[in-house]
Amino acid sequence: MKTPLIVLMASLPLAGCISFAAKPPPSLLTIQAQSAPAVGQTQDSARGKAIGIQVPSVPQELATARVPVQESATSIAYVKDAQWAESPAKLFARLVSDTLTARMGRVVLSPRETSINAGDMLSGELRQFGMDAARREAVVTFDAALIRDGKPAVEKRRFEAHVPVGRIDRDSVGPALNQAANQVAQQVADWVGR
């Protein structure tokens, strides 16, 4: 009985040295809307048109917290030590929501709230949200689908923004993708608001 206890006691110091998960990066990336709703501002769908925004679908390379780099037409890598705080699709949907509220005065509803008063409905696919190594730029491409309230037709439109970067590394990709995402969100807001 003493032998197993000795083995157990000897292995305890090693327990703190063993890790089965990847080491987290020093910080996580996020994006912020350049046009955001004012704090304390009440939104009322009786006075402003409502719109439901769905979290966009994404291709597999964006279904991760890592930042993709398109190296060639058939090769994708990821930026070392760059990781999003949450999925790019959720970050982008929130950015579009804030931009639509601030720029167009729209009452933006989450997917759960759309059963109350859907109004218009915006969905789509976030096709690119990463870096292009050959062109050394951040690229955001969103294929939007809009159903306007009371109309049976679906409007589709592609939005895209490119922002040049000097280097593709952890420190430069966040600001460049934030700028590109805001450009796309503003284009979407102008299209929805017309």
Rank of each mutant, 00 (worst) to 15 (best):
D44K: 10
D44E: 14
S45C: 00
S45W: 05
A46K: 15
K49P: 02
I51T: 08
I51D: 02
I51Y: 03
G52Y: 01
G52I: 03
I53R: 06
I53P: 10
V55N: 06
P56W: 02
P56A: 07
S57P: 03
S57R: 08
V58G: 00
P59W: 09
P59G: 06
P59N: 02
P59Q: 07
L62T: 07
L62K: 11
L62I: 08
A63M: 02
A63C: 09
T64D: 04
T64M: 01
R66C: 11
R66F: 14
V67Q: 12
V67P: 11
P68M: 09
V69Q: 05
V69T: 06
E71W: 07
S72G: 03
S72I: 06
A73N: 10
T74Q: 15
S75C: 07
I76F: 01
V79L: 05
K80T: 13
D81L: 11
D81C: 02
A82S: 11
A82L: 09
Q83V: 04
W84I: 11
W84T: 07
E86H: 08
E86P: 07
S87I: 00
S87G: 08
P88L: 01
A89T: 05
A89G: 10
F92K: 03
F92I: 09
V96G: 11
V96H: 00
S97Q: 13
D98G: 11
T99N: 06
L100K: 05
L100Y: 08
T101A: 15
T101G: 09
R103A: 12
V107K: 12
L109R: 12
L109S: 10
S110V: 06
P111L: 06
I116E: 07
N117R: 10
A118M: 13
A118W: 04
D120M: 05
D120T: 05
L122S: 02
E125N: 13
E125W: 02
L126Q: 01
R127G: 04
F129V: 06
G130S: 07
G130C: 05
M131V: 09
D132M: 10
D132N: 15
A133Q: 14
A133W: 06
A134R: 14
A134Y: 01
A134V: 11
A134M: 06
R135L: 12
A138H: 08
T141M: 12
F142P: 06
D143R: 10
A144I: 00
A144S: 11
